[in-house]
Structure formats: structure tokens, C-alpha cells
């Protein structure tokens, strides 16, 4: 489920990247690739940060409960 979520976020990032490429119209393949990679990376980072931020309180709560 975790990986599915990352995949969905990655797909979302790529869609944003395609939109950005359409908007900015780089002339080189490297330029297109760079924009897509940036959007993909950002979406995955955002997913990771979000997952870390939301999971941590639950874990702390679980730790408290165990304690």
C-alpha cells in the first residue's frame, strides 16, 4: 500500500512535469528530462515527508500506550 501511494504520487508528479514541459517548452531533450525528473523527485519527496509527518504522531502514541 505504501509503494502504491508512492507510485500514485510519482504519477501525479510526472503529470505536473508534463504540464510544466508544455508550458516552458525547452528545446533540448535534456531540458525536458530535467523538468520531468525534478517534478518526479519533488512529488516523491513530498510523499515521503507527508508520510513521515503523519506517521510519527501515531508511532509516538503507540509508544506511549506501550509505556
Amino acid at each position: 500500500m505504501e509503494w502504491l501511494s508512492y507510485g500514485a504520487w510519482g504519477a501525479f508528479g510526472l503529470l505536473v512535469g508534463i504540464g510544466l514541459v508544455t508550458y516552458a517548452s525547452p528545446d533540448t531533450r535534456a531540458g525536458v528530462g530535467l523538468l520531468l525528473v525534478i517534478c518526479l523527485a519533488l512529488s516523491l519527496i513530498a510523499r515521503g515527508v507527508w508520510g513521515w509527518a503523519t506517521a510519527r504522531p501515531e508511532k509516538e502514541q503507540a509508544d506511549k500506550d506501550e509505556g
Partner: peptide, 9 residues
């Protein structure tokens, strides 16, 4: 944005 991507891509 396009120029930046082309320059550093």
C-alpha cells in the same frame, strides 16, 4: 524556465 532547463539539463 525553458532556458534554465536547457542550460542545466
Amino acid at each position: 524556465i525553458g532556458n534554465w532547463a536547457d542550460r542545466w539539463g
